[in-house]
Design a protein around this nucleic acid. Structure first.
Lengths: 337, 337
DNA sequence: TTGCATTATGACACCGGTGTCAGGATTAGA
DNA sequence: TCTAATCCTGACACCGGTGTCATAATGCAA
């Protein structure tokens, strides 16, 4: 069984390779009869074009790179799911590349990546979506990119964001509506813009309900489960103890729950706990976590879809979209006793 | 800034492209002086070879595909981590491709994948590692592959497996040593060979400690959290209730824990619970799950490393390795009261 | 110094596509 | 029916590497 190439198709169909190429790419200026004939040979020989050769000729690889540096594995999985869906629809492939935002050689690492794999584009997922240094580097290198981010960007790039500020506002308001007035807050990783956004939403909700902001109720976390444990310790040691805790993501919220339970506290009777993201763990533990669900898959899918369409036909107008999140109430929050 | 290609290097160094190619690939028959000269130009021009062109000439893509169909997201993440490590070391890239084992068009899907991306090799992760149909297809297509599996294979392929049977034996023995005699078991997904292995280990432990196997204590799960909930319901409804539950993975064990807690049972006082895999959730919940830790990352890394070396220089001898797992005791298991 | 084996080097085709451009065929308009 | 515009088609170069093979340069023994 010999390899089927554009040449074999051409000779079988009795036309030139260029004509075959035209049919392949749906180019105009091919008579219906010729097109028909070539398509028939495609089927007969079961021909599929060699993407590598095509890539060489067009200087394209049909590969999108997905950059991430995120402590939340489940978040990464969701990002990948969305990116894969977009790639599949467009016959692209997805290359995954974890790397360190704070690494000294991040830029070198990315440069290396670009050189060894000739990516057609890159999708920057949190926290890279808000990391201007990297965006500028890619812009200088003329590598198309799209961002999944949280902050509101004011540039001409492709970006899909979620309204974290609003989500945080809503979940805080939910706690307030249950009668809570002393609500502790655990911040996320300082490199993530979502951290700032969620904190803002928390404060805005307090303010708009006349609750004074108390700095002592705020702990610095970094989105990892471990940081949640540390923060939880400080919060549970406070006296008086807050009646509710809003952690910036579900892993940290789960940590609070674990520590509280270890200390014989009843959740939500003794203390309410809320998270963010609607990670799997939010429903895998008891009590289930009240949280904010974000369309992470959809966000990434849109970003990658736009990226690919931008690669095929670079247009000028930026694509900036904000997707909404929604409150999911479970058993970890209840009316204050 | 013009593009730097092998041609520009050649003209700068005053040699032919072929000689540059020789230096690039560390081929013999280049004089030290010439080699030196070319290497210097590499640096001056900051040259990096174009992998696509190289791929075209050698009919290689320098991409490894990672196939999976696994309900456990954390398992996938670990597999990816290991595969990425091996790829990075060898300047390969990793393409991820989720697909459905039971899908009617699995073979078509994979065929499509191979045609559109010319993978150099494929790593089959559970449950594909034990899926002969796919292995045979790849063999027929002459696509190199490596397997991460559980069953003991008797063929000439590259495969890295873990000793699930032994792990299950040990954790069951651990429960027995705590005084448990009525130990329920939740099976995994029937398509995974690990399911069979773990069940075997469970039975062997019972047998070797003179405990009679009781079919009523066995539930069919599928590794998903949800299936764990269903199984847990049946088990907790048994009368007399087993004093311990061994679930084939941590997600299902977490489900048992959640349901037990919902029903006001104290773990481990009223019932001991053990899992398998040492997934993150095992330490994120309270009480932490006693479980079996498997070197998933290491297994995958070895498999991919071998795969790549096989691609570069196909050798005859198979590579089959079994890695050991180890028992991790946490708070979810205790001496029977 | 000559003769022969060995090493070093380059010319050239090739991998499998796409872009450019020229020229033939067809159609429309006069 | 003739001319001009438009549509089709193919020849050929090119993308940036690698493989083959011929030949030039060198090394070594006689």
């Amino acid at each position: 069984m010999k390899k089927v190439t554009i040449n074999s198709v051409a000779s079988h169909a009795g036309v030139s390779k260029k004509t075959v190429s035209r049919v392949l790419n749906n180019e105009p200026n091919v008579s219906a009869a010729t097109r028909e004939k070539v398509l028939k040979v495609f089927k007969e020989l079961d021909y599929t074009p060699n993407p590598i050769a095509r890539g060489l000729a067009q200087n394209r690889s049909f590969i999108i790179g997905c950059l991430y540096d995120n402590p939340s594995k489940s978040y990464i999985t969701r990002v990948q799911t969305g990116a894969l869906a977009a790639c599949k629809e467009n016959n692209y492939n997805l290359l995954i590349h974890p790397c360190e935002l704070r690494g000294d050689d991040l830029i070198n690492d990315i440069e290396q990546l670009l050189q060894t794999s000739r990516l057609d584009g890159v999708v920057l997922t949190p926290p890279f979506g808000d990391f201007e240094k990297l965006a500028n580097f890619l812009k200088a290198k003329k590598i198309p990119y799209a961002r999944v981010a949280s902050a509101l960007l004011e540039d001409d790039s492709i970006s899909v964001r979620s309204n974290d500020e609003q989500g945080a506002y809503e979940i805080t308001e939910h706690l307030i509506s249950l009668g809570h007035k002393s609500i502790a807050f655990i911040k996320g990783h300082p490199d993530h813009s979502a951290t700032e956004q969620r904190f803002k939403g928390y404060r805005r909700a307090l303010a708009s309900h006349g609750i004074e902001f108390d700095e002592r109720l705020v702990e610095e976390g970094n989105f990892s489960y471990h940081s949640g444990v540390d923060s939880a310790r400080s919060i549970l040691d406070l006296s008086p103890r807050p009646t509710a805790v809003f952690a910036s993501n579900d892993y940290m919220a789960a940590a609070v729950l674990k520590l509280a339970t270890q200390r014989q506290l009843k959740v939500p009777d003794d203390i309410s706990i809320a998270g963010f993201d609607n990670a799997p763990i939010a429903r895998h533990i008891w009590p289930g976590l009240t949280t904010i669900a974000q369309p992470v898959e959809e966000m990434t899918k849109q970003a990658v879809t736009q990226l690919i369409s931008h690669i095929s036909q670079p247009q000028e107008q930026p694509y900036q979209v904000t997707l909404e999140s929604r409150l999911i109430t479970r058993e970890s929050t209840a009316v204050i006793k």
